[in-house]
Design a protein around this nucleic acid. Structure first.
Lengths: 146, 146
DNA sequence: CCTTGAAGCTATAGTTGCTAGAGACATTAA
DNA sequence: TTAATGTCTCTAGCAACTATAGCTTCAAGG
């Protein structure tokens, strides 16, 4: 049995984050030692690794909650899991496209900044004047996911 | 003079967001009409467009605050503005690299999911087993910016 | 056996960048 | 004039943590 610190180290998840996951019901309530400290076994370790990995891949905690509940009924079709993954893929692709455009614009800005005075600074100028911008901002609903 | 609604429409920024920017000091306190409604002129419009554009490019409000205060002293060197933009570019580049890797892994997951039962589902399996993962996760400090 | 320092506990509040709601007042068009 | 829309303030909520305070428990060294 691992204490919360060891578990966090093994799964590379911070201790308060583990407690937070328990609080929101993503991890079951842990067993406790005589002195009221949390103890974890292999199952908890695997579940946490799953969560960590899915977070790395950009899944929201809600999506992870769904995936975890799916994995609890192994006889069901995996169409739902596939759908969640596909949705995630689509989101990643759209973020990629957006970031690629941003990169191009930032590069233009930076390259053009010759190191003069603020009054002539391209960075400030480009930010101030939307018409100098190459990116298509006609769809304000596709905000950049930060 | 524009009311807050017209300003928001023109700059494509939502009304509560404008009030929020005023509250945190990114926009100066607006003039008021006889009936206590905010009124905006060209200067406020330009400042808001600057903010909007910088947000589109992924700058944090803190970075924008810095850029705005830089632009208030036009005789100063633009090195600081350049540095902020370069930092932003570096961040975008690292997010891009990370997202590209994620995309590859999600694609592998989705392609391999043949539509069987959960028990054999690659999506669940890949998420559960870190060793099946092609992405390099040895640097937990480079978290995915969401 | 005792002490000391690290690690654990709970509970609360803060972070970023907004967004939503309630209830009251202002403005505009029919 | 009246109804609809817009604006006002204030408070609370969202994701996904992170930090702080003040306490208890545990493991190792002397």
């Amino acid at each position: 049995m691992l204490t919360i610190g060891k578990l966090g180290e093994a799964a590379r998840v911070k201790v308060p984050t583990i407690r937070y996951y328990e609080q929101i019901g993503l991890l079951p309530e842990a067993e406790r030692s005589a002195g009221n400290q949390r103890l974890y076994g292999r199952k908890a370790m695997e579940r946490l690794a799953f969560i960590r990995h899915a977070r790395d891949l950009g899944f929201t905690l809600e999506a992870i909650r769904d995936l975890l509940s799916l994995s609890d009924i192994p006889d069901q079709s995996c169409a739902a899991a596939d759908a969640i993954a596909r949705a995630q893929l689509a989101e990643v692709e759209s973020r990629l496209a957006r970031l690629t455009a941003l990169k191009a614009e930032l590069e233009r800005m930076v390259v053009q900044c010759a190191g003069g005075k603020i009054a002539d600074c391209r960075v400030i100028e480009v930010l101030g004047d939307h018409s100098l911008c190459a990116t298509d901002h006609r769809h304000p609903e596709t905000e950049l996911a930060q």
